[in-house]
Computed example of a mutant assay.
Amino acid sequence: MIVPAGRPGPAFYLAGDSFPDDVGVERALAPRLGPHFDGWVGQAALADIPGGFDPAIAARAAQLEAALPEGPALRRVVLIGRSSGARVVTEVACRRPVQAVICLGYPFRRPGGPLEPARFAHLSGLAVPTLILQGTSDAYGTPTAARFHPLSPHIQVQALEADHRLRLAAPDWDAACRLILDFCAHAAAPHDLTG
Rank of each mutant, 00 (worst) to 15 (best):
I2E: 04
A5I: 00
A5W: 01
A5P: 11
R7I: 01
A15W: 11
A15E: 10
G16F: 03
S18G: 01
V23N: 07
V23R: 13
V25P: 00
A30K: 15
R32L: 15
L33A: 05
P35W: 05
H36R: 15
F37T: 02
D38C: 02
D38L: 05
G39M: 11
G42K: 08
Q43T: 14
Q43G: 08
A44E: 11
A45V: 11
D48F: 03
P50D: 06
G51Y: 02
I57K: 09
A58W: 03
R60H: 00
A62I: 11
A62P: 09
A62C: 10
A62T: 14
E65S: 14
A66K: 11
A67S: 13
L68Q: 14
P69W: 14
E70Q: 13
E70R: 14
E70A: 10
G71A: 00
G71K: 15
P72Q: 07
A73G: 00
L74G: 04
V78D: 13
I80E: 03
I80L: 13
R82S: 12
R82V: 01
S83Q: 03
G85V: 08
R87I: 01
V89S: 01
V89R: 01
T90A: 02
A93N: 06
A100I: 06
A100T: 05
A100R: 03
C103F: 01
G112Y: 10
G113Y: 03
P114T: 12
L115K: 03
E116L: 10
P117E: 01
A118T: 12
F120C: 07
F120I: 00
L126Q: 04
A127G: 13
L131A: 07
I132W: 00
D138C: 12
Y140W: 14
Y140I: 06
T142Q: 10
T142V: 14
P143N: 06
T144H: 04
P150V: 06
L151I: 08
Q156K: 15
V157Q: 00
Q158R: 15
Q158L: 15
L160T: 13
E161G: 02
A162F: 08
A162E: 03
D163M: 02
H164N: 08
R165N: 03
L168Y: 09
A169Q: 10
A170G: 00
P171Y: 10
P171H: 07
P171Q: 07
D172V: 13
W173L: 12
D174Q: 05
F183G: 08
C184R: 02
A185D: 07
A185H: 13
A187V: 10
A188K: 14
A188E: 02
P190E: 13
P190Q: 11
P190R: 08
